[in-house]
Simulated scan of single mutants.
Amino acid sequence: MMPSELEKMRAGDWYTCLDPELEMMRVAALDAVYAHNQLAPSDRRSLSTPLARLFGSHGRNCLVEAPFHCSYGFNTHLGDDVFLNVGCVILDSAPVHIGSGTLCGPGVQIYCATHHTNISKRRAGVENARSVHIGQNVWLGGNVIVLPGVSIGDGAIVGAGSVVTRDIAAGAKVAGNPARPL
């Protein structure tokens, strides 16, 4: 029996994102994200019920400001005391782990999907996805972009506007496009 597109996505293989099952999952995530984004600010002071049910896992005292967006939600895992500032986007076609005490500035974007380089396959929705791991007590400045497959070590600081294209060691301070040690 052929694996489903979801099974291929979870295995890190090439899959088509235009699959009806994946579309249903994205719509469920969009509904939960919409519900979260419509909450009064005082009701977002702790992780809201819509996102709590959507995320793969989350710790205590997480705060996700609105607007927020994610593709699936079930692949997003937050430790304790994680803060996602306004405008954060997590395209979680693969697991995204964000460690306890991590702060994400406004407009941080975390990408897992890579589209196919062949034009006809790309137009057909063929992509693959790689996990992103962000350690504990990391600070991602505003508008940081984290690309697929990247790991960021505990205590690292990524300067605002940086594009993280490769792994960052624990305790490192990086900035730029691509992000480089300071």
Results as ranks from 00 to 15, higher is better:
M1G: 14
M2K: 15
S4G: 14
K8R: 12
R10H: 08
R10F: 00
A11E: 11
A11Q: 12
Y15C: 02
Y15Q: 01
C17P: 03
C17I: 11
E21A: 07
L30M: 02
D31N: 05
A35I: 03
H36E: 08
N37M: 09
N37H: 05
Q38K: 09
L39G: 00
P41S: 06
D43K: 08
R45G: 02
T49Q: 14
T49A: 15
L54A: 05
G56K: 01
S57W: 10
L63W: 07
L63F: 09
A66V: 03
F68A: 10
F68N: 03
H69C: 03
H69V: 01
S71L: 06
T76S: 08
T76H: 05
H77D: 13
H77R: 15
H77W: 09
D81Y: 09
F83Y: 10
N85K: 00
N85R: 00
V86T: 15
I90L: 09
D92F: 01
V96S: 07
V96Q: 01
H97D: 06
I98A: 05
G101D: 07
P106E: 11
P106G: 09
Q109V: 08
C112W: 05
H116K: 08
N118D: 14
N118R: 12
N118K: 05
I119K: 13
K121P: 15
K121N: 10
A124N: 14
G125S: 06
G125V: 12
R130V: 10
I134L: 09
N137F: 08
V138P: 02
G142N: 13
G142E: 09
N143Q: 11
V144H: 01
I145W: 00
L147P: 01
V150Y: 00
V150N: 03
V150M: 06
G153R: 05
V158N: 11
G159S: 11
G159M: 04
G161K: 02
A172V: 10
V174T: 07
G176Y: 01
P181S: 12
